[in-house]
């Protein structure tokens, strides 16, 4: 009995080490495969297997005016939103890293609360603010700056401002996380060596915060590419984003085209992420910022 146990113990030594962990991961992995990965894959396959194996859909995509226009709008929107979020977010991140404990916590709450308020509610808030009789127009008329209400809602501007509002925390948190790790002694050393605050910022703080900026830019840009709810609610009918075009095609039951567009969106997203993860420091920032 004992010898049998020993013998079997020896034979199965190496493989057995990973069996138990795999059994723990297996339920989730199978679940994700069944209800997420395989559905996604089978949908995406429609782009090359409808009705027979073909690359025709993709070939058409290159010359498709609608697609090119929508793709352009999507990229432009993502770019504007990213730059806007960077301009708005950097000062807050800097403040967050410099404030005392109590004040910093308060700022963090203000940054995080919208983070966990649903995108829908925040988009709705901007509908209220930017409407024809919305708060912004009322305020502008009350102060006499304009006579007639401006058309703000259902414009690219509304999309940009609402998306910046929604994505701002994704920019602030990684930058703040990097800024907080900058050794205070470094700043005192720079100041001690005679650098005025502006120079300390430009020559020490800013270069050191680049990985955080890169991570923030990546997150905001990637998330912007796939945005759906906000542009659908506050944007105009002519400023379709890629995700809206996809939803539209699904409603029309044009699966091959929708799958084709989805592949394009997914490919752009993954490509950006894979490229950015190769940049120095970005991977670490993303890892710490997600905690």
């Amino acid at each position: 009995m004992a010898t049998v146990a020993i013998a079997s113990g020896r034979l199965s030594r190496a493989p057995l080490r990973h069996t138990a962990p795999i059994l723990l991961v297996a339920p989730l992995a199978l679940y994700m495969a069944a209800f997420y990965a395989l559905p996604l894959a089978s949908m995406l396959l429609r782009s090359i297997a409808d009705p027979t194996w073909t690359m025709e859909n993709y070939r058409r995509l290159a010359g498709d005016a609608v697609f090119l226009h929508v793709f352009g709008t999507t990229l432009r929107t993502a770019l504007i939103v990213t730059l806007g979020a960077l301009a708005f977010g950097y000062p807050v991140a800097l403040a967050l890293s410099r404030l005392r404990q109590g004040a910093a916590t308060l700022v963090l709450i203000i940054v995080l609360l919208p983070f966990w308020t649903s995108v829908l509610v925040r988009s709705y808030a901007w509908m209220v603010l930017l409407g024809r009789k919305g708060l912004v127009n009322e305020a502008l008329i009350a102060t006499g700056l304009i006579d007639a209400p401006l058309k703000l809602l259902n414009t690219p501007f509304a999309v940009h401002i609402a998306m910046i509002h929604i994505l701002l925390p994704y920019m602030i948190l990684p930058i703040a996380s990097v800024l907080r790790q900058i050794d205070g002694a470094l700043l005192r050393a720079a100041a001690g060596l005679g650098a005025p605050p502006r120079r300390v910022f430009l020559q020490v703080v800013l270069p050191l915060s680049i990985p955080g900026v890169a991570a923030g830019v990546l997150l905001v840009f990637v998330l912007s590419l796939g945005f759906y709810i906000t542009p659908a609610l506050v944007g105009g009918p002519r400023d379709l984003m890629l995700s809206m075009l996809i939803a539209q095609q699904v409603d029309l039951l044009n699966w091959p085209y929708a799958a084709c567009l989805s592949t394009a969106l997914l490919a752009a997203t993954l490509l950006l992420i894979l490229v950015s993860l190769r940049l120095p420091g970005v991977r670490d920032v993303l890892r710490t910022a997600t905690r």
């Binding site: 004992a2 146990a5 020993i6 079997s8 113990g9 020896r10 030594r13």
Partner: peptide
């Protein structure tokens, strides 16, 4: 840790398994 080779006995009884 399990040894890749050899045996360990405690009070003359192998404990590797």
């Amino acid at each position: 840790e399990t040894p890749d080779a050899g045996d360990i006995t405690i009070d003359r009884r192998s404990v590797v398994a």
